[in-house]
């Protein structure tokens, strides 16, 4: 079991944990964290896949991909958190029936 294979397996494990977390949790913050875990898992697999060049050197392309992936994941998480904050702000502001009425109308 070479080292890279271990890295790949942990990546996949992280992925499964993340997906489970996303699917089972209802609270928004937990879902956002779960998605980040999935991201981390995928990036780990990407890095693990990079160890292949015959001359022993590390193949740079997956690393570039991981960097970009991290940038994308961070920006998406930022947007998600902004929405979560807006939802939280709305919830406080209209603790009365309006929120429920909104819910009903959306149905």
């Amino acid at each position: 079991m070479t080292l890279t294979l271990w890295y790949a397996l942990t990546g996949v494990a992280l992925l499964v944990v993340g997906v489970y977390g996303l699917v089972s949790r209802v609270h928004v913050l937990r879902q956002i964290m779960a998605v980040n875990i999935v991201g981390a898992g995928v990036f780990l697999v990407l890095v693990a896949g990079a160890h292949r060049r015959p001359s022993g050197a590390i193949d740079p392309v997956p690393h570039a991909m991981v960097l970009t992936g991290i940038v994308v994941a961070v920006s998406a998480t930022a947007v998600a958190l902004a929405f979560a904050r807006r939802l939280r702000a709305d919830a406080d502001e209209r603790t009365d029936g309006a929120a429920r009425e909104d819910e009903a109308r959306a149905g």
Partner: peptide, 9 residues
């Protein structure tokens, strides 16, 4: 609900 989607996934 997410749960069923996850299952379907």
């Amino acid at each position: 609900r997410w749960y069923t989607t996850g299952l379907a996934l």
